[in-house]
């Protein structure tokens, strides 16, 4: 394990040091004293682990391709922005646009997320991005979603309070979303289907939740299929007739 002291360093320096260690074949790196440095793990290609103590700045793991990042506390905006593959595990909360246009890989968040998380997510054959949010999400979750999976668990919420905001899945034309807890159709964008998860869906949920709970070393409360609402697109062409062609 390589330990890099990052206190007071500019992101350019931190990222260059991570690159040097990574290119020298180091596959377990711990970053100490991170305080707002941006782009950590950016376009990192290959399998390996980066542990972060402190609060990483915007665009953590942007364009990342294969690595795993563990953050003990919170992270800022744009976690996993345009990520290709790999995994980001956050023990606290994150803010807006996490998982923007993710094409593969996983983002596990123990706490809550901000607005427009998982927008433009895509999937193609075995490339299948997954985001699991432990507590709550802001508005526009999964906007323009074209593939992949989002699960919101709504943990630690009083009964009857929805774990997600408004305009959920606006313009969604692929992928699916499972929300545990209260969710009313008015919270979804137009043209969105709402249902209970099928048996296969529930098996998929459970398999990802097992991995999530292991990575975050937490025990999930007992769950059953009826706790979840499935949100899915009813068309692959939501704007096909907008211009009357």
């Amino acid at each position: 394990m390589k330990v890099l002291q990052c206190q007071g360093k500019h992101y350019r320096e931190v990222n260059a040091e991570v690159d040097n260690a990574w290119n020298a074949g180091e596959r377990e790196i711990r970053l100490e004293g991170i305080n707002g440095q941006r782009y950590i793990g950016r376009s990192l290609t290959g399998v390996g682990t980066i542990e972060i103590s402190g609060i990483p700045g915007d665009d953590l793991g942007v364009f990342m391709d294969g690595a795993t990042i563990f953050v003990r506390g919170n992270a800022q905006e744009g976690v996993g922005n345009t990520m290709n593959s790999g995994k980001i595990v956050v023990g606290g909360d994150i803010r807006d646009i996490a998982g923007y246009a993710m094409r593969g890989g996983k983002i596990w968040v123990r706490g809550s997320v901000g607005y427009r998380v998982g927008i433009h997510m895509k999937s193609y054959l075995s490339d299948y991005p997954v985001i699991i949010i432990g507590e709550t999400s802001g508005d526009f979750l999964g906007e323009y979603m074209a593939g992949g999976l989002i699960i919101v668990l709504g943990l630690n919420l009083p009964a009857g309070v929805s774990p997600v905001g408004k305009f959920i899945a606006s313009g969604m034309h692929g992928g699916k979303m499972f929300i545990r807890g209260s969710f009313s159709p008015e919270q979804a964008g137009p043209g969105i289907g709402i249902d209970r998860p099928s048996d296969d869906d529930y098996l998929e949920i459970i398999s990802y939740l097992t991995e999530y709970a292991t990575d975050l070393a937490m025990t999930l409360p007992p769950m059953k299929p009826d706790d979840f609402v499935k949100v899915y697109p009813t068309t692959t062409r939501p704007y096909g007739r907008v211009y009357a062609y």
């Binding site: 999937s123 193609y124 490339d127 074209a146 692929g174 692959t236 939501p238």
Partner: peptide, 30 residues
């Protein structure tokens, strides 16, 4: 494009991660 066949490829006018010059700077430097 890594999207399913026959599905629309939608690229809306706003980049939802860019609401200011500072946000644009973030993408430029990313």
């Amino acid at each position: 494009r890594k999207i399913p066949e026959g599905s629309d490829a939608i690229s809306p006018a706003p980049h939802h991660d860019i609401y200011s010059i500072e946000d644009l700077e973030r993408l430029v430097f990313a």
